[in-house]
Nucleic acid binder design. Sequence first.
DNA 1: ACACATCCATACCGGTCGGTATCTAATACC
DNA 2: GGTATTAGATACCGACCGGTATGGATGTGT
Lengths: 199, 199
Amino acid sequence: MQTKQPDITRDKVLEAAFCEIHRSGFQAASIANILASTGLTKGALYHHFPTKQALGLAVVDEVIHRRLDVRFFTPLRQSEQPLETLLGILENIADRAQELVTLGCPLNNLMQEMSPLDPAFKKRLGDVLHAWRESVEIALQLAQGQGDLRPDVDCADAALFIVSAWEGCIGIAKNLQSPEALSVCSRQLQAYIRSLRTT
Amino acid sequence: MQTKQPDITRDKVLEAAFCEIHRSGFQAASIANILASTGLTKGALYHHFPTKQALGLAVVDEVIHRRLDVRFFTPLRQSEQPLETLLGILENIADRAQELVTLGCPLNNLMQEMSPLDPAFKKRLGDVLHAWRESVEIALQLAQGQGDLRPDVDCADAALFIVSAWEGCIGIAKNLQSPEALSVCSRQLQAYIRSLRTT
DNA sequence: ACACATCCATACCGGTCGGTATCTAATACC
DNA sequence: GGTATTAGATACCGACCGGTATGGATGTGT
């Protein structure tokens, strides 16, 4: 039994910061709130992170990126029927609809807020976005190789649009606070993807 | 020649507030910055608007809504070939690409930031969004009546998706700071719309 | 057991925020 | 032309912000 567990403390701060940022955005996220929800103090936070910006960037790299990795990137990469996997992810997202509709996608929230304001955020967020696009693009290419996707489809362009439209759908559903709107949008996006298939 | 022109003062504040909010978001928008860019003082601002929130809501109603009205809603309503008009709007948007890519869509920016935080914002922004969806939906219905659109297309669902995807495309292009990405996305969205046409 | 680095709590700082009270001056009204 | 109302300037307030300096407690290497 140890009274000091630095990495656990760091993780607690990261998790609390992620929640606070998810709720209020980065600029409006309050250090005091983050600390209050963890029971820690400023000494602990500023021992592990030099500035609020560094904390935010760590949230992007270590929380947001990892979550998307587990939920999207890895399943897509490991799939042998990538097109079905992609459609399945969009279909099954209704499970998380309430959470997504309430607060939106953490990645998109931060991109909209911070990309024009802070180059460091823009880069880190762009890296995550790139990983996402790439995983979708590779899935499409694989499907194309298997003959499931029309040969004239530009996989990179389609992947960019799928990710963009997906983020847009979550954003609009967030404003409407409507899980139903999200599933309507999701089905339209699935229709777009199916329109790329070989007939 | 008058030294006091209250409505002109009000418009100057509104315009400056719109720019500041467009640049920094609502919460990070500084009253002091708005006043500095107009040369006015707090006395003028708080004479016309009781709170910062009221100023923000007025920006939504009187600036953002009107701009979208001029650029999108009215052309769509007045068109006799609504599908072509819709596709044309998406195609010609490249003219404003630089501006959109730099700061994003004012409506979407505010929806992402404020809808979960402030019910008043959520309602006003929802009204603008509704007007947008409606104008697209009516255009699709008209096209369907003219036989240009497949009869099995649900115009309301398709309109929701078109608006959502469009906002998503602008948001992603903003992160990438790439007008090219916007036009790629725009073309994919046009392809989706064309896939709804009668063959 | 002693020195040293790590970890974290406390108290405090300057700056900025939105908002208000007060006062002057210009306009509209009769 | 006098009066009430509107328009706008100035000075100021408390609250909160991110960040820092300091000190004490805990673990670690020797």
